[in-house]
């Protein structure tokens, strides 16, 4: 049983690390600010969530696990707020998003 728990948490930690690196790569590869935000949100949700879940499995039923859960909740509530503030500030400053279909640009403002 302990072995299975270890295996599960190992898999979760590795998956979380993979998504973090993928998000970081996206941060570099994406062409403009708005698309980079999507890459960053992969790090904030999947990467953070999976790593914290793996650590919770390691901690078991202790105060440490509850603390990890609190960190997860903090990320889940705060990161979209910060992301929304960032995107809104960028749009208000007039940073035009690069769109796939230029004819759709009329729907912007």
């Amino acid at each position: 049983m302990a072995f299975l728990l270890d295996l599960a948490s190992w898999l979760l930690l590795c998956a979380g690390g993979f998504f973090c690196v993928a998000g970081g790569l996206g941060l570099l590869r994406m062409p403009d600010f708005y698309t980079r935000m999507h890459a960053a949100s992969v790090v904030d949700t999947l990467g953070a969530g999976l790593i914290l879940l793996g650590l919770i499995l390691q901690a078991g039923f202790t105060l440490v696990a509850v603390k990890l859960l609190m960190i997860g909740l903090l990320i889940f509530f705060a990161s979209p707020t910060a992301g929304h503030a960032l995107a809104r500030a960028a749009l208000i400053r007039g940073l035009a998003p690069r769109l796939a279909d230029p004819e759709d640009a009329s729907s912007k403002r």
């Binding site: 998504f19 993928a22 994406m30 992969v42 949700t45 999947l46 969530g49 690069r98 796939a100």
Partner: peptide, 24 residues
């Protein structure tokens, strides 16, 4: 979140970067 996160990750890692940013 898991479903769309996996989708975005696949698009990031795809060498041709198959994205079509859209405002809705």
């Amino acid at each position: 979140i898991v479903k769309s996160g996996w989708d975005v990750t696949k698009r990031i890692l795809d060498p041709s970067l198959p994205i079509s940013p859209t405002l809705a």
